[in-house]
């Protein structure tokens, strides 16, 4: 049994898919000999060669754009963007091309590509390195948005993303790249996309989150448990397409829900989940849906970053308020 970090699990999944399918290529800035700024591609160039592990010039447009061309030709490119702050040119390619090629050619040309990028704050990174802009991608039809929350889920979900026949944005919670270790065996078993993961069963309140905030959410659930409040914890895992049924079924049982995300409040993906509950689960709700999120502010630099990040204490407080609502 091998304990691995989340970033090691990413490397393992990349190597696994490259090994099983010669059409899988890795492209990005510094992904070759340097192994990526977070070492997610470490060792791949030695094992698979420079044809399949390709350093690009500093051009995120190229990382996404050549991936569209390669994918249209039957390759399975996995592009790495170094930080979410640099991913915005990629949106042009994802929105205008990758996500619509299958539709606009009525299935003649498809785009099986993955764009990986670390996201989120809490590691005292420089400006433009700490944002959580996942909601931007969830508004794009034809695109999958996947976010793992543990090493094992990173491995299984990335396998599924690379094997998927359509484009996937795979956002990696870099705050927990190395802070958690767990058993990850190279089984080749993927975790199904488009499904929420039930991480903790509970009867009193449903806590819904994804990515690094799963850590605080599970901590909060433990604290609440000592107070006699049993929280059910759901990791959304695939934000788009959303597995709303799992969330709705849980809230049918608990009657209460809080959504926790690091991203800003307004139009965060929590809004979508709250709206689904209002639309399809209103009569099951015993309290308003709560959102524990970042603020609608420019992501602060490291000195003030800790004020921005949602904490387990805020999750506990929101859950208590929900429980007290009548």
């Amino acid at each position: 049994m091998t304990e691995r970090t989340l970033v090691e699990a990413i490397t393992l999944a990349l190597a696994r898919t490259m090994d099983e399918n010669e059409k899988v290529l890795v492209v990005g800035e510094d992904v070759g000999i340097d192994g990526g700024v977070f070492r997610a591609t470490a060792g791949l160039i030695n094992r698979f060669g420079k044809d399949r592990v390709r350093d690009t010039p500093v051009s995120e447009t190229v990382i996404a754009g050549i991936s569209v061309g390669l994918a249209a030709q039957g390759f399975r490119p996995v592009g790495e963007v170094q930080f979410m702050g640099f991913i915005y040119p990629v949106i042009d390619q994802l929105l205008n091309h990758a996500s619509r090629l299958r539709t606009r050619t009525r299935g003649r040309i498809t785009c099986p590509m993955v764009i990986r990028a670390p996201y989120g704050g809490g590691i005292h990174a420089p400006e433009h390195h700490s944002e959580s802009m996942e909601a931007l991608f969830t508004h794009i039809p034809g695109l999958r948005v996947v976010i793992p929350s543990s090493p094992a889920r990173a491995y299984g979900l990335l396998l599924a993303a690379i094997r998927d026949p359509d484009p996937v944005v795979f956002l990696e919670p870099k705050r927990i790249y190395r802070s958690i270790k767990e058993e990850v065996e190279d089984t080749g078993n993927a975790i199904a996309l488009d499904k929420c993961q039930l991480l903790r069963a509970g009867r009193d309140i449903t806590l819904v989150s994804w990515g690094a905030m799963i850590v605080e959410t599970l901590q909060a659930a433990e604290t609440l448990s000592t107070e006699g409040i049993e929280a059910e914890v759901i990791d959304v895992a695939t934000l788009k397409p959303l597995d709303a049924a799992t969330i709705l079924n849980s809230v049918e049982k608990t009657g209460r829900c809080a959504v926790i995300h690091e991203a800003p409040y307004t139009s965060g993906f929590g809004a979508e989940i709250a709206a689904r509950l209002a639309e399809y689960g209103l009569t099951n709700l015993l309290a308003p849906v709560r959102r524990v999120t970042g603020y609608d502010v420019t992501m602060p630099l490291p000195k003030l970053e800790h004020y921005y990040m949602p904490t387990a204490a805020r999750v506990v407080a929101a859950a208590r308020e929900s429980m007290e609502f009548s």
């Binding site: 061309g69 039957g74 390619q93």
Partner: peptide, 12 residues
């Protein structure tokens, strides 16, 4: 926006 695609197709 299709110029990078051409590079990708040609790389294939």
């Amino acid at each position: 926006s299709h110029f990078p695609h051409a590079a990708g197709v040609a790389l294939a």
